[in-house]
Structures are given as structure tokens and as C-alpha cells.
Nucleic acid binder design. Structure first.
Length: 383
RNA sequence: CCGGGGGUCGCAUAGCGGCAAUUGCAAGAGGCUGUAAACCUCUCGGGCCUCGCCCUCCGUAGGUUCGAGUCCUACCCCCCGGA
């Protein structure tokens, strides 16, 4: 159990009508059942929830963000406090993002820095100071923080970029992949951590193929697909995800970064994805948008002012077993932290139940009808 | 009764000769996809509802002006001092 296996993914069952599979992912802090959804704990907390509350909704793993934690409180503090697990009192697996998304969000979208071959040069959003994030710094800092699953630093090209741009962007990411790999190999002497490579390529099949082929040569523990949650939606998103996952080794964990809505997850699982993370359930909860098996509901809407029923009648989360829609409606409207806490609890529990159902139906051979059921409610928009 | 201040979209505000009229809150609707996000966008007098135009509008009633929340007069309310 504590010895890192040759391949961290163990496939336990496969769907007969698709390439969906269910299994377990090994980490030094225990196994994670797949397909799994990883809630984002960007700043070393799933906003509003305590570790006990996360366990109560059956969360197995969280995602921390290197970029945010690197700037504040900094790796020295986290190391001194015994590493991320000890610091945030979470004794289950932690995956950390490399800061690659911030290269996209802060540099490409907001112009707070620039990309150089050496690394990403950020102008810190906190104090304006200049910070150079290199693949070496990202990987070694994730390692020092105690991350169990480390992501290589990558660059996501915005969806609007030309193939020429994406071509050189893929080259840069491939270069960073090698440097990430080298850094990790020097650090991982205890052989207890996982390093995931990231495939890019935007909407261009040739670039995706090139990126996948070269990344696979570096033999990572798992492969993530990046750049798809940054400007692609619905059918276009699903199409690219399908193309890209098809290029990745069948026996290794396949991670779709930053995705997504229930329909996106179902579609990606059908195409062989094992791991997801997304801010949607937590952020939308804070904004009053709740997921149910009847679709999404905006709880602050006037129609719920006096609604005595729970958010979702058969949900087992704390919010649904204790409070009415009317109360949640009130709490969110008056901006009370309990409202956001309950909304987050519910949405994450909804996502956890979705993943539990996905795994169970794959194992039982009933995944096909289950996907039809979900997709009839969470219907992707045609383009 | 005297002196001073004030009445503008549900509440609170701006406006001091060209105004359907500022901003905040409230209200209504929507959006968030590896979190600079407890955030952002739109609507918010009425109508046609083609967004351009029409109607009604800033306590009430007159007046001055090509034109009045905006200036003048009277009246009605509210607040603060003094009898």
C-alpha cells in the first residue's frame, strides 16, 4: 500500500459500451477511487468547509494551488509547519496545480506578466512584485510543500490563438515538461510522489497529437489534458477532450484539468477520463447556484422565498437534511457565511454522489442508462 | 410665532437653466469550467415593445423663460435652534 506501484492506476472494471473505466489511484496518503472529482482548495482550504466537513461528504482528495501558496504564506512557512497535510489538517491525498492556470489567467487574460523560455514572469497580484515561476521552482516547491500528486508547469494558449502560436506554445510546454521531469527525478528519492505531465494543443489535432506523443515519451505517472476549460464549451469541449484522451496511454490515469459541469464530466468519463477538478461546484455555490437531479436552481430567486422543501429531496447532505430552500434563500441573500457553507456542502455532495454513481454504474454494467439520465437533465448546448 | 435647513424612482443620495434625471442599497433576471470570483453582467416611471420614439415626471399651485428638480411667489409637510 505504501510502496509506489509501477502504475498508480488500478482498473477494476470497464464499461462494455464505451471506454469508461473505474478503479483506484494510488497515492502515499491512500487510494482514491476513480473516476474522481477533486474540489479546488486553492488556498489550502475548500472555501468555507473544515476537513471534517469534507470527510462527511465523502471527499477523498483536494487540490491546492502552488501559485497562491507560493506567494502566501510561502513554502518556508508550510515546510516549517510540517507540510500541507499537517498545515491544513487534511490526512488524505493532496494534488497541487503547478501555477499553469495562472500563466493563462494572470498573464494571458489580465496582462500581469509575461512568458519567457525560462519561466513565467508574474507581477504578483498581491503586491506588484516580480516573481519568476520556472518549471524547476514549481515542481520543487510543490514537492517541498508535501504534495502527493505534482503537476508539471505548462502554458495554456487562449482558445483564440492561431495554430502557429499554439505550435510554439506546445514546444515551450514540452521543454518545461522535460525540466519538470528532471527536477522531480532528483527530488523523488523516496519514490513516494506522483508527477503528472500535461498535454496541450488547443483545438488543433496535429498539435495535440504532437504534444501527447512527446509528453508520453517522458513517462509520467499520469497525464492531464490542459487548456480545454479555458474557452471551450459543450460540444466543442467534448470533441477536443475525446480526441485528446484517445492519444493517452490506456493504462495510465487520465486527468481533464478544470472540468467541469456534470454533462462535461459524464462525457469525458465516457471517453476514458479518470480525474477531474473544477471550481464550478464551490464557486457557483457561493453565488447561489445549486445542482440538483432536476437541474440547477438559483436559490436566491424569488420563487424560493417561502419554499419549505429541501434543496434536493433525496440528498443526504447536512443542508438538505436540516434546512429548507427558504432558509438557504434567506442566508445567501443576506450574505451570511452559513449560507455559503451549506450551499458549498450541498454542491460538493452532489458532485460526490455523481462520481459515486458513475463508479457504481460502470462496475455494474449500467453506465449507459445512467449517462442518458444525467444527460437528459444536464444537456450540453449544441454549437 | 421667529430664525435656519430640507421635500428628486421602495429607502438613501447627486443634480443649482437643456433631464426620464447620478450613485449606493433593496428588488428582478442571468452568467461563472486547473479560483485576482461571498464575484460579474443586464433590468429597474409607463407604453409602443422594431431601443428609436411617444406619454407622464423631481411636495402642491401659479409665474419668469425658447426651455424649469434647477430661478421667483404663495401654500402644505418634515428636521434643527429660539421664544
Amino acid at each position: 500500500m505504501n510502496i509506489k506501484p509501477q502504475n498508480p492506476l488500478t482498473i477494476l472494471a470497464k464499461d462494455s459500451k464505451s471506454i469508461a473505466r473505474t478503479g483506484t489511484l494510488w497515492t502515499r496518503f491512500g487510494e482514491v477511487q476513480t473516476p474522481c472529482f477533486i474540489p479546488d482548495a486553492t488556498q489550502a482550504t475548500v472555501k468555507h468547509l473544515s476537513p471534517d466537513e469534507l470527510k462527511e461528504i465523502n471527499l477523498e482528495i483536494v487540490l491546492g494551488n502552488l501559485y497562491h501558496l507560493w506567494l502566501r504564506p510561502g513554502v518556508d512557512v508550510i515546510e516549517k509547519l510540517g507540510g500541507l497535510h499537517e498545515f491544513m489538517q487534511w490526512d488524505r491525498p493532496i494534488l497541487t496545480d503547478s501555477g499553469g492556470y495562472q500563466v493563462y489567467s494572470l498573464i494571458h487574460r489580465s496582462g500581469l506578466g509575461k512568458i519567457t523560455p525560462e519561466g513565467a514572469l508574474f507581477k504578483s497580484h498581491l503586491d506588484g512584485s516580480k516573481k519568476l515561476l520556472t518549471p524547476e521552482i514549481s515542481v520543487s516547491t510543490q514537492y517541498r510543500m508535501g504534495s502527493d500528486i505534482i503537476l508539471m508547469l505548462d502554458e495554456s494558449a487562449p482558445a483564440s490563438k492561431t495554430e502557429k502560436y499554439v505550435h510554439s506554445s506546445v514546444n515551450l510546454t514540452l521543454e518545461w515538461a522535460k525540466r519538470s521531469r528532471d527536477t522531480f527525478d532528483h527530488l523523488n528519492t523516496q519514490n513516494d510522489r506522483l508527477l503528472f505531465g500535461i498535454v496541450q494543443g488547443g483545438v488543433y489535432p496535429d498539435q495535440l497529437a504532437r504534444s501527447a506523443e512527446e509528453t508520453i515519451k517522458l513517462d509520467f505517472d499520469g497525464y492531464a489534458l490542459g487548456g480545454v476549460a479555458v474557452g471551450l464549451h459543450d460540444e466543442k469541449l467534448h470533441q477536443i477532450v475525446g480526441n485528446a484522451l484517445n492519444l493517452l496511454p490506456e493504462d495510465k490515469p487520465r486527468y481533464v484539468l478544470g472540468v467541469g459541469y456534470p454533462q462535461d464530466i459524464i462525457k469525458a468519463v465516457l471517453m476514458g477520463a479518470d480525474i477531474f477538478d473544477c471550481v464550478i461546484p464551490t464557486r457557483n455555490a457561493r453565488h447561489g447556484s445549486l445542482f440538483t437531479r432536476y437541474g440547477t436552481m438559483h436559490i436566491t430567486s424569488a420563487q424560493y422565498r417561502t419554499d419549505k422543501s429541501p434543496i434536493e429531496d433525496d440528498c443526504d447532505c447536512y443542508a438538505c437534511t436540516h434546512f429548507s430552500r427558504a432558509y438557504l434563500h434567506h442566508l445567501i441573500r443576506v450574505n451570511e457565511p452559513l449560507g455559503m457553507r451549506m450551499a458549498t456542502t450541498h454542491n460538493l455532495r452532489f458532485y460526490m454522489r455523481l462520481m459515486e454513481n458513475i463508479r457504481q454504474h460502470i462496475a455494474q454494467g449500467t453506465f449507459d442508462s445512467f449517462t442518458q439520465e444525467i444527460l437528459s437533465i444536464y444537456r450540453p448546448n449544441a454549437h
